[in-house]
Every structure is written in structure tokens, then in C-alpha cells.
């Protein structure tokens, strides 16, 4: 029995040792199984485009804790959209939604775990992420991006000998970014900090949660929401390619949003919208 116990212990230890060269045996069983295709779980009664809080309709019903200044920007966005414009939603001309809006998961998501990095792949506009789990410190200078710079740490919250939660912090942003398509704004100072806890449902391994807290100067307090995704059951799920520029009729000229008609001409999107200035053309438009 003693000999068998020794061999058993050596076998478990072997699962964690470096096998050869400069690559270590990657024991996937240490991590939760996040493989496959994840989709946002629809909520009955919540219609329209999804919001930051997926349990509420986007826009005013989100009850975002906005500062007075951010509220004015938001109301101006809604008014512009009412008149036919795009308001504060930058994605119509294929700018990335950025964080935290990426985690709305407009299109299916794949999570690829390696020891050094968790990759989050989402089609849609430009929604991929890298979450560094290699123990690095925050760099002195972060190149700002829409997705931000994310550092994560796996934790074993139950002491089960297996990781179950990924805690992530994301900083280093550029903008403009909005919480949803109605243009609920994040601050133009881009000093957002986002904290996430990503974990499987203990009762159902095909449900994934992302508890997100956004700290931003457009808000009067941190804003926390619980995102919920379901795993597709197909063994070989279909990953449809989404290319924002393909078939996108929106055009922005001089800060004005226009639309390309089916016959390729420029159309206004708002009543009495001025035509673009053609001063650089020798002959004017028809």
C-alpha cells in the first residue's frame, strides 16, 4: 500500500512538472472548462439591443448612476438618435465598442485559456481581449486601447485544488466609449477602471457569469452588473465571421453621419441635414 501511495503522489506531481525544454506541461484540469461557444442569455421582456445591465432594456431604463454632466451628454445623444443620428454610439462607423461594452457579447464568444493569457474572442466590430495571467505588474506606461489592458488572477475560492474564479482588472483606455447603443457615455478622460469576476455557475457548468464593476468619472458611484452567458451544446459550433465594414451603409464626413443609398448615392439621416461641403470639387454635386 505504501509503495502504491508513493507512486500515486509522484503521478500527481508529474502532472505539474516541466516536461521538456522551455515549455511546461499545461494541466488544463486546474482551470474551469470554459471551452466552446458562449452566448448572452436572453432575458424575457428585455427587448431591443442589449444593455450593460442585461436584465434591463437599454437606455434610460438602465438607470445608470450618471453625473449631471454625463446625464446632459446622454440626453443629447438620445435627442440626436431621435432625430435620425447616431448620438454617442461610436460603433456605427466600425469603431470598437471597447470595455465594458465588449462583454455585452453581441456575437458568440470563445474563451481560450493558456497559463500566461486568457484570450477572449468575440466577432462583432473589434471585440477581442487579452487578459494576462502571467503574474505581471502594471506597466509604467500603458498604450491606450478601446479594449484596455487587462491583468487577471485565477483563484481557488473553495480550496478544491482547482481554480474556479478569474478576477480581472482593466485599465488604459481610449475613447469614445459608451455603455450601450443609446450612447450612455463613459468619461472622455478615459480613466475608467473595470473589475470583473468570471466564474461558472456551481450548479450548471454551462452557465458562465461575469460580474462587472465599472468605475468611471461619468458615474456618481461604481456601477456593478451581472452578465450571464450560456454554452452552446453543438460539438462543433459554427463561428460566423462578422465584418463591420461589409455592407455598412453609414458614412461620416466632417462629424456628420450620412447613409449610402442602395444605388450608391449619399443620403441625409436627419431632417434638413446639410449636404457635405464640396468646395474641393471643381464642379458641384448634382
Amino acid at each position: 500500500m505504501r509503495y502504491r501511495d508513493l507512486i500515486g503522489a509522484l503521478v500527481l506531481a508529474a502532472a505539474f512538472v516541466a516536461a521538456a525544454g522551455d515549455a511546461a506541461a499545461f494541466d488544463e484540469s486546474k482551470y474551469p472548462n470554459l471551452k466552446g461557444q458562449w452566448r448572452r442569455v436572453p432575458v424575457p421582456g428585455v427587448v431591443g439591443q442589449p444593455g450593460y445591465d442585461q436584465y434591463k432594456i437599454q437606455g434610460r431604463t438602465q438607470q445608470a448612476p450618471l453625473t449631471p454632466e454625463a446625464t446632459k451628454i446622454f440626453e443629447a445623444s438620445l435627442a440626436d438618435q431621435e432625430a435620425g443620428g447616431q448620438g454617442g454610439d461610436p460603433t456605427y462607423i466600425c469603431r470598437s465598442p471597447g470595455m465594458p461594452r465588449i462583454m455585452t457579447v453581441y456575437d458568440p464568444m470563445e474563451i481560450v485559456i493558456t497559463p500566461e493569457t486568457v484570450h477572449v474572442f468575440i466577432e462583432h466590430v473589434h471585440d477581442n481581449r487579452r487578459i494576462y495571467t502571467d503574474g505581471r505588474d502594471w506597466p509604467k506606461l500603458i498604450e491606450p486601447t478601446f479594449a484596455g489592458y487587462s491583468i487577471g488572477r485565477w483563484t481557488d475560492s473553495k480550496g478544491a485544488g482547482r481554480y474556479d474564479t478569474l478576477a480581472v482588472e482593466t485599465r488604459g483606455f481610449k475613447g469614445p466609449r459608451a455603455f450601450d447603443a443609446t450612447g450612455i457615455p463613459l468619461s472622455s478622460d478615459n480613466q475608467t477602471v473595470i473589475r470583473e469576476r468570471i466564474f461558472l455557475d456551481p450548479a450548471d457548468p454551462n452557465i458562465l457569469y461575469d460580474d462587472i464593476t465599472t468605475i468611471d468619472h461619468s458615474l456618481t458611484r461604481p456601477w456593478s452588473v451581472a452578465k450571464k452567458y450560456g454554452r452552446a451544446q453543438a460539438k462543433q459550433p459554427l463561428w460566423e465571421e462578422t465584418n463591420c465594414a461589409e455592407g455598412n451603409g453609414h458614412v461620416e464626413i466632417g462629424g456628420q453621419g450620412y447613409f449610402r443609398s442602395a444605388d450608391g448615392r449619399l443620403m441625409p439621416t436627419k431632417k434638413d441635414q446639410p449636404a457635405p461641403d464640396l468646395r474641393y470639387f471643381k464642379q458641384g454635386g448634382k
Partner: peptide, 29 residues
């Protein structure tokens, strides 16, 4: 716009990208 490629100038106005390029059709305005 249509089959033509234009450039948005630094002042936000539309510019031609080749000599003699026609301006876009603005008949909807």
C-alpha cells in the same frame, strides 16, 4: 460613395483623390 473613393480632408471636407474626379451625387439633399 458609390464606386468612387474620396478623402476626408483635415478640415472635415470631402476631397477628390484623382484628377477630374466627379463630386458625389447630392440629389437627395
Amino acid at each position: 460613395i458609390g464606386n468612387e473613393n474620396y478623402m476626408e480632408g483635415a478640415d472635415g471636407n470631402l476631397m477628390p483623390t484623382r484628377k477630374g474626379q466627379p463630386a458625389p451625387d447630392l440629389s437627395f439633399f
